[in-house]
Design a protein around this nucleic acid. Structure first.
Lengths: 246, 246
DNA sequence: CGAAAAATTCTTGCATACAAGAATTTCGAC
DNA sequence: GTCGAAATTCTTGTATGCAAGAATTTTTCG
């Protein structure tokens, strides 16, 4: 049902008015906004507890409120933000208790990944994971933290992918967000580099041998060691920050 | 529309026009929309593969597109919907492969829950879980599927809560959505009722004894049995549906 | 000067308007 | 009659407007 007089469907005739950046496609704003905001949170650029003002974020990211609000909802579901009714969302605190909770879950999940991956490990797949391991060592020798970081994550991700279980990968990615955030928050990591590399070698060996039980156990312990060290570092820093309490 | 001469910033003066249901608070639409839509999907009222027309959903749920779109995004993240660029989102197919993937992950997660829960089980907590077990038996004897369903889920949830690990609970709830959907889709469940009740008793015994390893193992196997039966039922029905293939 | 209350301002929650891409229909040529 | 192309319609993606609730400031009274 259209209007009575002559409001014809015309807009198509003009159509070429604003030209808002030629390279920008339509469905890309949500994804990129989520990615940007997530990065700000995971890297700590947005500190835990910080309030998110939607209008400010709009200006900062150059988009309207709609994608910003969608991104906030998404990241809230991922556990990186906390939503308060009728108030600004805030960056989730990363308390030590939650990281301790992560230890059990992530180690179990990666343990399962190791078990499944070992059963499916082909020479090619193992070689690829080995390559990631060596890349990580390279970054270690060069003292390149970001590269080390990335290669480490790729090593673990590849194992989870090798497990061939999409649900497992989905869960792992959710957990990885929180783990990454915890890692960024404590850059005392160089201490564990050497140990982590040795453990990776052991894991690789178990995968090469196709020993599911061993791969599972070693991955479990590797994750547990890493996150436990992280908790210790955070606790230490927490104590240092507030020396009065004891 | 009124005359253009007096377009002053007035609207505040009138203000009392629509009166949109007195009991409705402000921040409630998103949550309730998600819940309603999720229910439609999990129960199968919206069949797998069905296209979601936003405008239709608006009319059906009586809200505007904003909360509907937010709900769609939320459920997409939960894996219940699939988003296609510039096209209608569709209800995720529940292929047997995904349910098989769920078996390993859910059994592992609940196994971990059992392990942690057994270590923390107080008499009171065990009694509460036992009550849920008996409620489930009651619904069983009365042949009340929905009540049985609910009590069963409460039984499992309570164990996960008892584990005292918020990350574990979060993951479990995500997985439970998909499991519920799979359960609803195959109502051949009565076959497993008796067996499930026996297994629950065994689990309860292990929790009572505080035997972490045993509780973990029994929960793992219980979940595996349940989901495997479900897969078998779905495969059977799939074969029956397309007898020509194979 | 201090404190409580009122009013302003600011921010979120929801609704709607507009634009871009996809689907469908219509029209024309062969 | 059928196939193909153009145009209309429909649907999603994004931006913006408006109202309710929260925060802040101002004002007034003790």
């Amino acid at each position: 049902m259209d209007s009575p007089a002559d409001t014809t469907p015309l807009a198509a005739l003009l159509a070429k008015v604003p030209q808002p950046e030629p390279g920008r496609r339509k469905g890309a704003l949500h994804g990129s906004t989520v990615a940007q905001l997530r990065n700000l949170i995971v890297t700590g650029a947005l500190a835990p507890g910080a309030k998110l003002n939607e209008r400010e974020l709009c200006l900062q990211l150059g988009v309207s409120r709609t994608p910003v609000r969608e991104a906030i909802k998404t990241l809230t579901q991922d556990g990186l933000l906390r939503a308060l009714p009728n108030k600004s969302s805030v960056v989730a605190e990363l308390d030590v208790g939650e990281i301790e909770a992560l230890i059990d879950v992530v180690s179990t999940i990666e343990g399962l990944a190791g078990e499944l991956a070992a059963a499916r490990a082909t020479d090619e797949a193992v070689a690829e994971i080995g390559m990631l391991h060596y890349r990580m060592m390279l970054h270690h020798t060069r003292d390149e933290l970001p590269g080390y970081f990335e290669a480490n994550k790729a090593f673990h991700r590849r194992i989870v992918e090798l497990a061939g279980n999409p649900v497992l990968l989905w869960i792992w990615e959710l957990l990885a967000l929180r783990v990454d955030r915890a890692r960024y928050s404590s850059n005392l990591w160089p201490k564990r580099w050497k140990m982590a590399i040795q453990e990776h070698e052991q894991i690789l060996a178990a995968l090469t041998a196709g020993d599911a039980a061993l791969a599972s156990q070693r991955l479990r312990e590797h994750v547990r060691n890493g996150l436990s060290g992280l908790v210790a570092a955070l606790k230490e820093r927490g104590e240092a920050a507030k020396p009065g309490s004891a």
